[in-house]
């Protein structure tokens, strides 16, 4: 029983990072109505930028964090220009296919520059392990959870209280009406993309700093985790993305403990199938908007 609670606690922490990845996907999906397959690899570019700064200049956590963020945002801007802004209108599949090509390109480019299998990433050193009665909480996990919570709260303020947030939501509500209301759709779409990249960059940084080492597999890993969490939670729903991320984190942690590493992967994909069959609209079920109906029509 203690094990179960301990796993749940760990799972919630990792799940909050998954939730951030899913949130990035959802922001892009809500505004563009298409999936950005290169989301994970864009984050990968950021993480390796951070790792490079760390190994060559022995940079501390803050410069590494900023480099990770900048790398992810710049790589995402590149993806947006090539796969999304350049492909207009209803050609959603073309965007997805081309973002898949950029995934390969970014991952290959990173692998060229960083040929080793793994690289070191700075960790949160010197933070004490937290004890809660019989339970333990790794300090990295606490940082992860609190950062994710703060980001989600900040995003909520942006989306509901600022003009930029409202413009972003008009795009997912009704693109045509947004245009005639004077919203510069291309500009808002680009900024949304970059915002999603920044959120993904934070998630990537937290995950890399927890593991202490990184490999080029992280790009695909981040895309997979984000996509699965988004689908479990319900396509196009912010709340669903968070719930999906947390659920995925907890299930993975339990499966890892009780079934081992290979059992964890099998359980993850089983969860995806069960979610698609039993809850085709996701865990946040029917709570939100036209995005969902739209998603159903497009996919």
């Amino acid at each position: 029983m203690i094990d179960f609670v301990q796993n749940t606690l760990d799972g919630l922490a990792i799940g909050s990072a998954y939730g951030l990845l899913a949130l990035g996907f959802t922001l892009i999906f809500g505004v563009m109505r298409r999936l950005n397959m290169a989301f994970g690899p864009s984050i990968l570019v950021g993480i390796f930028a951070g790792a490079w700064l760390h190994s060559h200049w022995s940079a501390g956590m803050i410069p590494v964090f900023l480099a990770t963020l900048a790398g992810a945002v710049i790589a995402s801007a590149y993806v947006e220009r090539l796969s999304f802004a350049a492909i207009r209108g209803d050609a959603a599949l073309a965007s997805m296919a081309s973002s898949f090509a950029l995934w390969m390109q970014l991952e290959e480019a990173v692998a060229r520059v960083f040929p080793q299998r793994t690289y070191a990433f700075p960790t949160f050193e010197g933070l004490p392990m937290l004890e809660l009665g019989p339970l333990f909480l790794r300090p990295e996990y606490l940082v992860m959870f609190l950062t994710a919570a703060a980001l989600v709260a900040g995003l909520q303020v942006i989306l509901t209280r600022t003009l930029f947030g409202l413009h972003l939501r008009t795009l997912s509500d009704n693109r045509e009406a947004a245009r005639v209301s004077g919203v510069n759709v291309a500009q808002v779409a680009l900024l949304t993309f970059l915002l999603a990249a920044a959120i993904g960059g934070v998630a990537g940084f937290l995950i890399a700093a927890t593991d202490g080492q990184i490999s080029t597999k992280l790009g695909m890993w981040a895309t997979m985790k984000g996509l699965i969490a988004m689908v479990i939670g319900g396509l196009g729903s912010m709340r669903g993305a968070l719930i999906g991320g947390l659920a995925l984190g907890v299930v993975e942690a339990q499966a890892q403990w009780y079934l081992g590493a290979s059992g964890r992967e099998i359980t993850t994909f089983a969860l995806l199938f069960v979610a698609l069959i039993l809850l085709p609209v996701g865990l946040a079920g029917g709570a939100e908007t036209g995005a969902r109906a739209e998603a159903g029509r497009r996919l």
């Binding site: 003009l163 409202l166 045509e176 005639v180 004077g182 500009q187």
Partner: peptide
């Protein structure tokens, strides 16, 4: 400015926010 034959509002935004967006849309530049 225009209206649509089949109404197109921002359904997730409040009534006042619908107006705020349109009032400020063109000042982004």
């Amino acid at each position: 400015a225009r209206t649509f034959q089949n109404i197109r509002l921002f359904g997730n935004l409040t009534v006042a926010q619908n107006l705020w967006v349109a009032q400020n849309g063109h000042e982004q530049r």
